[in-house]
């Protein structure tokens, strides 16, 4: 229901803008919607959506595979934190998107460079969030583990992992938005399929209705991924008092 309300507000503002601008550059939402529905069945559109989805999921998976152990290690081992954190702070603010040409030279113009770029950009906020989550685990719980002689594996399984799981989902939510933006940019270079490519191609060809329809699909893709994250969180994070 909350998504329907949000969509109604966006549509209303869009109508107002289309009326005010009165130019093909801002078409009416119902025109875009009808075009989008008609084209959604198109096999070509399926390839664009699937290409983008796979790049995002691969980028997220790769980033989290690196960020979770890095964040946990930096949060648990003070000596490692002293080395890893300054490196992360130094690299975090760099405009990594500027390295896309470098990635293309190193890893080719195919999907590998795009996925790597997405994962590198997501890695830093995810690792920092997870590291902070580990550091914020109440010392009382770790003392409890010591008092009850828990093994390292049990400390991780029973205390560290469940304590940081909400943080991992938070970082997923934050990085999902970033990854969609990066996906768009990475697909505007040397791509034949992908929503970013489709949006830019429609713009170049002055097919504004198609361009907006693709933007709408990209936005829906983001929404579906957010819903998926919420569902996963509800399944894996046990209820607790906020």
């Amino acid at each position: 229901m909350k998504y329907v309300k949000g969509a109604i507000v966006v549509m209303f503002l869009w109508y107002v803008l289309a009326l005010l601008v009165a130019s093909p550059i801002v078409p009416f939402p119902h025109v875009v919607l009808l075009h989008g529905i008609a084209n959604f069945m198109n096999e070509d559109m399926h390839r664009h959506i699937i290409s983008s989805l796979l790049r995002i999921l691969a980028g997220l998976a790769l980033a989290l595979t690196m960020a979770i152990p890095t964040g946990i290690a930096a949060g648990r081992i003070r000596m490692l934190d002293r080395i890893v954190s300054p490196v992360m702070y130094l690299l975090y603010p760099l405009p990594k998107i500027a390295f896309l040409p470098v990635f293309m030279v190193l890893f080719g113009i195919g999907d590998v460079s795009k996925v790597l770029l997405i994962s590198v950009i997501i890695f830093f906020p995810a690792a920092v969030t997870i590291r902070d989550g580990v550091k914020e685990i109440p010392t009382e719980y770790l003392e409890l583990a010591k008092a009850y002689h828990l093994t390292r594996t049990r400390v991780f399984k029973d205390i560290v992992w469940p304590a940081i799981l909400p943080r991992i989902f938070s970082s997923l939510r934050i990085t999902l938005g970033i990854s969609l933006s990066v996906l768009f940019i990475s697909e505007t270079y040397a791509a034949r399929y992908g929503l970013g490519y489709h949006i830019m191609n429609s713009w170049v060809m002055a097919q504004y209705v198609q361009m907006y329809a693709s933007i709408m699909v990209l936005s829906l893709l983001g929404l579906l991924l957010y819903i998926l994250v919420d569902l996963l969180e509800r399944t894996f994070v046990h209820p607790r008092k906020k």
Binding site: E140, L144, H149, L150, D158, P162, A163
Partner: peptide, 20 residues
């Protein structure tokens, strides 16, 4: 037994008792 119960909020009662 500590001053605060230190029960793990993500575990049900029986799993808190069985900690470790």
């Amino acid at each position: 037994m500590f001053q605060q119960d230190r029960l793990l909020p993500w575990k049900p009662v029986v799993d808190n008792v069985l900690l470790g």
